[in-house]
Design a protein around this nucleic acid. Structure first.
Length: 485
RNA sequence: GGCACGGUAGUCAAGUGGUAAGGCCGAGGUCUGCAAAACCUCUAUGCGUCGGUUCGAUUCCGACCCGUGCCUCCA
């Protein structure tokens, strides 16, 4: 069983170069922090997280770098609009991002460099490119000379059409705005000369005051933390061109070594069959979904439920089914725990030190699916089949199964959630509470007719009673829950 | 226009040259006073359309139809 991933560049599945003992380097293009990240962004990070979790289970030492873009047109524009310094503006959004990552149970990267903290490295890289003739200065800005880099376009398979395509847009009109100062329209900016619209944001450089272009930060940071060649570089499909293409050009032109061994691109999300975009107003955030009664764990599950190279249509129907599926998984985990006598805390540690995938007897097919280009849908199938095949194990069996079960849950980042915490916390009106208590009393007195009558009244008021062994729980009726808004 | 990707049951979604995993929903059942939960059973002679190759194709080839993405900041 080897870990294989589809490499965008070669368009084939290739064995991941993760020999034991060697540190595996992976870089993920992180967020631009000008607002809350949306679930489309998070699909990328969840997929990257699955790769990292798999490395961990395979006991491959890794360095995982995910950057934060904290300087660009949007962050500058917004910070000025809100009369804040760039860092004051950006800080809360970084905090928000970290919080959301935690809620989605994403493992933290080994390091998370910020663009503004690595300006020096970026400038150094730019100077190297100038020295080697791959870049030139125009009016205080620095541009990459694409004509000097023969391999340009090989990732997105753009070939020689690149000049045409960048000069013309989809409607055939020329993209000539601001292009006049470059040698060729396809040349992209490495360093942007200061403009008044940049406000207080600028750094001194050999070419004058200014700020870095977007692409250069990733080349610089990946070199800084992972060296010349990265084993795996990930990001959303849209980054393939031009961002990653430009990263390749910068890094390889400067360092003369292959930049990336394997490229992994995550397909986009649609929302209810439509492209997710600001103008359609369907950019969903974790908070939006939580307000509708969906837990982050279910969001994570939903994001993983389709193969990462396939566009995923994100719908509320999908969220509902994710939540239901998760409930089953939790119930099964609960059963295994109580059967084996292992408590929750031990289980958490258990997942950290799980068995090696290749040693799995019951869930071997699960890990085989995951290692085959992250076939999560297939792996989930294995998970449910496993549950059906091992419905009520003995104490000893349960312990055995738990070894593998916990490893599988760890791989997918599914945390055990006791069912009690699953109910949304909703304010219960006093009169409803009173009615419910009366019903419970009637039930205890075995006055079932009276109990049923009160249940009926509660139902008419939109509340349902869930009886448990020694108490009861009130929940808003379906159709009135936040989830069904 | 160029380059990619996809069209599998109500829905979401794997998959294979030899006859369709799984999830959700739905139906029936077991169990509890009722309700819920849990568990069990059932649900595609069919895999966009039409041809071709083959003993045999959903899976390979060709044509066509439909959908999506990228080519411009974008996860």
């Amino acid at each position: 069983m080897t870990f294989r991933l589809f490499n965008t560049q070669t368009r084939t599945k290739e064995a991941v170069q993760c020999e034991k003992g060697r540190t595996f380097g992976t870089y993920c293009c992180g967020p631009t922090v000008y607002g809350p990240a949306h679930i489309g962004n998070f699909r990328t990070y969840v997929v990257q997280d699955t790769v990292v979790r798999l490395l961990k289970l395979l006991q491959i030492p890794y360095r995982y770098i995910r950057n934060i873009t904290d300087v660009d047109d949007k962050t500058i524009r917004n910070s000025i609009a809100q009369r804040q310094t760039l860092s004051d503006y950006v800080e809360p959004w970084i905090e928000k991002f970290h919080n959301d990552c935690k809620r989605l149970n994403l493992l933290p990267p080994t390091q998370e460099p910020r663009a503004t903290e690595t300006i020096e490295a970026q400038q150094k890289l730019i100077q190297t490119l100038i020295d080697k003739g791959h870049a030139y200065v125009r009016d205080g800005s620095v541009y990459f000379r694409i004509a000097s880099f023969g391999n340009y376009g090989r990732l997105s398979h753009l070939d020689s059409r690149i000049l045409q395509t960048q000069a013309l847009n989809s409607a055939g009109r020329s993209n000539d705005a601001d292009e006049y100062d470059r040698e060729q329209v396809a040349d992209f900016v490495l360093w942007k000369a200061y403009k008044p619209t940049d406000g207080a944001v600028s750094w001194e450089s050999l070419w004058g005051r200014g700020r870095p272009g977007w692409h250069i930060e990733c080349s610089a940071m990946s070199h800084l933390y992972l060296g010349q060649t990265v084993d795996l570089h990930t990001g959303g499909v849209d980054l393939c061109f031009p961002h990653h293409e430009n990263e390749i050009a910068q890094s390889e032109a400067a360092y003369g070594a292959p930049f990336v061994r394997q490229w992994l691109h995550i397909a986009h999300l649609q929302v209810e069959g439509q492209k997710m975009s600001k103008s359609l107003g369907n950019l969903l955030t974790l908070d939006d979904l939580q307000a509708r009664g969906y837990r982050p764990s279910a969001v994570r599950y939903a994001l993983l439920s389709g193969h990462y190279r396939q566009t995923l249509n994100f719908t509320f129907d999908l969220m509902r089914s994710a939540q239901s599926a998760l409930r089953k998984i939790n119930a099964y985990t609960h059963a295994l725990l109580s059967q084996s006598g292992i408590n929750e805390e031990t289980f958490e540690k258990h997942t950290e030190n799980a068995v090696l995938p290749e040693k799995c007897i019951f869930l071997g097919d699960f890990f085989e699916a995951l290692q085959d280009d992250l076939n999560v849908p297939k792996a989930l199938g294995c998970l449910f089949t496993f549950m059906h095949q091992n419905p009520s194990p003995s104490k000893e069996q349960a312990k055995l199964l738990l070894d593998e079960w916990s490893a599988a849950l760890y791989a997918l980042g599914i945390q055990y959630e006791a069912s009690d915490t699953e109910l949304p916390t909703v304010e219960i009106p006093n009169n409803i509470q009173t009615l419910a208590e009366q019903r419970w009393a009637a039930k205890q007195a075995r006055q079932f007719q009276e109990a049923d009558r009160l249940r009926q009244i509660l139902g008419e008021n939109g509340w349902n009673v869930l009886d448990r062994k020694d108490d009861y729980v009130l929940e808003p009726l379906k159709g009135k829950t936040p989830a069904d808004v």
